[in-house]
Amino acid sequence: MLGLDDPFVLTAYLGIIALAVLSILYGLIRRNAARDEVTDEDRQWALEEKKVDDEF
């Protein structure tokens, strides 16, 4: 199949495509499933990160 006689290589080739499709499906299904809120702790963390980054 596809000119690849070794089943292990063929599995890797098709497996890559299957994983990519699975990832797309996951992204579509979970698009709005998780909560999306920024807490004060998150914001505080980002301010510190930005400070270090800007000084750098």
Binding site: G27, R31, D36
Partner: peptide, 14 residues
């Protein structure tokens, strides 16, 4: 920012 952002990044990342 959140779990949702991670979920949404999966297809493009893959």
């Amino acid at each position: 920012r959140s779990r949702r952002e991670l979920d949404r990044a999966v297809p493009i990342g893959a």
